[in-house]
Structures are given as structure tokens and as C-alpha cells.
């Protein structure tokens, strides 16, 4: 049996009497690169918020790294890069190093200070995302794609087992999107970090993901990318509720 990082059983959640999620069952196997797709308002962000413990589902239970979410304490094992990271306070005067150091704040704990070993870890995380030469630059001077790499480094500094990314490539240009996926690919295959990626960019994702999950209130599809791309347009339009085209990027 393969280990599961996240296991959700019969999760339902309603917001203002509208069912956002209904009986969702999802297992994320360790080491997988899972792409989460689905129409807007299909519950993708809600699902992520439930995994992160930001909202409680109305029913169902969740296991994170083998522990029930209510007793789970290892939050630094779960990294999160939000879509909002793109629209963060641009003028905030912090260096790349300082931003990445914030990933360690909770782990180090109250009334304790940064030490030399932490500094080393921070620099390693910056190096992993290929941004070492920018370590002491102001984060505001970097491009959107570079900033997203820094936010990944902020999670990597905790050596996470699971990294959740909510539409991280919004507003990033095509060339950098490609490099961004290459970075994710490397983190997944070489460092065995499990990835859960929410995206609209199904084309690029299908080249890198190991699993694809399609969510519209309930799970409509869970399989490998090949099967997903071979889904007929008719199948997809049932999932999305309207006609869709998948754009496959051939190389």
C-alpha cells in the first residue's frame, strides 16, 4: 500500500445554504504531483482551505500525514503558495532572504531566535529555486515569476512533505511559467515532495502531473494525465457544465 499524505472521506461543505462540496473522497499518495482542475466556483479553493485547516467541513473526516486533522500539529510539513502571493504588498521593504526566513518563524517557535544553522537553511532554500544571486535584493524589485519562486522557497525552508499551490502562475509570462513547472517537476521527482496544484492551465500541467483530479462540487474525474487528455469533449462539458477545449502543448 502506498502512503497517503492527505486522505479525505465524504467531505461536504455548504456556504450560505449552497453546497460547495458534496461527498468528496480524495487520497493524495505520497510523491504524487496532483493537478486539481475544475470550473470557477467548483470548490477548488474551498477544498484547499479545508486541507489547510482554515475552514471546517460540515461532515466527513480528513487525515493529514496519517493523523486526524483535529490533532494534527505539524503544520510546517505542509507548505502553501497562494494566488494572492502575486498581489502581496509590493512596496513591502524586505529582502529575499528576509521573506524566506519568515517560513521558519513558526517552526523556531516563540521566544527563540534565528541561528547560524537557520541562515544556512534559508540560503539553501533560495538556491533550490535558483534565486541565490538575488538573496539580498528587495523582493519588490523582482518579476512576478521570480517572486513566486521566492514564495516557494519560503515553504521549502521547512522541508515540507506536501506543497499546495493555488493558481501560482496567474500573471506570470509564458516563458517563466515553463521554468516554474520545471522547478515543480524537480522538487517532485528529485526531492519527493508531494504537490497539489490548482490551475486553469491544464495544457502545461498535463506534461508534469502524475494525477489529475477534476472537481465541480463532487469529484468527477481522478486519473492519470493520459486518460484526462483522452477524455472526450462531451465528458468534459458534463464536468464543467459547458463546452471546453483542452489545449495540449506538444513539444
Amino acid at each position: 500500500m502506498t502512503e497517503t499524505v492527505v486522505s479525505m472521506n465524504n467531505i461536504s461543505y455548504a456556504y450560505e445554504r449552497k453546497n460547495v462540496l458534496e461527498n468528496v473522497n480524495l487520497e493524495i499518495p505520497k510523491g504524487s504531483f496532483m493537478g486539481l482542475v475544475g470550473p470557477n466556483g467548483g470548490g477548488k479553493t474551498t477544498l484547499i482551505k479545508i486541507i489547510l485547516g482554515l475552514i471546517r467541513p460540515d461532515s466527513g473526516n480528513i487525515q493529514l500525514l496519517g493523523k486526524n486533522i483535529d490533532t494534527f500539529r505539524d503544520w510546517n510539513k505542509i507548505g502553501f503558495v497562494s494566488q494572492k502571493a502575486n498581489a502581496f504588498n509590493k512596496g513591502f521593504p524586505a529582502t529575499v532572504f528576509e521573506v524566506v526566513s519568515m517560513g521558519l518563524t513558526a517552526k523556531i517557535g516563540y521566544l527563540k531566535f534565528f541561528k547560524a544553522k537557520h541562515k544556512q537553511k534559508i540560503l539553501e532554500a533560495i538556491e533550490q529555486v535558483g534565486m541565490l544571486e538575488f538573496a539580498y535584493q528587495n523582493i519588490g524589485n523582482l518579476s512576478g515569476g521570480q517572486q513566486q519562486r521566492i514564495f516557494i522557497a519560503r515553504s521549502l525552508v521547512n522541508e515540507p512533505e506536501l506543497l499546495i499551490l493555488d493558481e501560482p502562475t496567474v500573471g506570470v509570462d509564458a516563458e517563466n511559467v515553463k521554468r516554474f513547472y520545471e522547478l515543480l517537476h524537480r522538487l517532485n521527482r528529485e526531492q519527493n515532495i508531494t504537490l497539489l496544484l490548482v490551475t486553469h492551465d491544464t495544457g502545461t500541467m498535463t506534461e508534469h502531473a502524475t494525477d489529475i483530479v477534476c472537481l465541480n462540487r463532487t469529484l468527477h474525474f481522478h486519473g492519470d494525465p493520459q486518460t484526462y487528455t483522452s477524455l472526450s469533449e462531451k465528458d468534459l462539458s458534463t464536468i464543467y457544465g459547458h463546452p471546453v477545449n483542452i489545449v495540449v502543448h506538444d513539444h
Binding site: W75, S82, K84, V99, M102
Partner: peptide, 17 residues
């Protein structure tokens, strides 16, 4: 470090505990 982390990104700080 807590004051700094919260000032920069409150949501992320909360998620990290």
C-alpha cells in the same frame, strides 16, 4: 520574528501556526 512575519503576510503566518 512574529511581528515581522505577521506584518508581511497575515494569512500565511496564520497557516504556518
Amino acid at each position: 520574528k512574529e511581528l515581522f512575519t505577521l506584518s508581511f503576510d497575515e494569512e500565511h503566518a496564520k497557516i504556518s501556526g
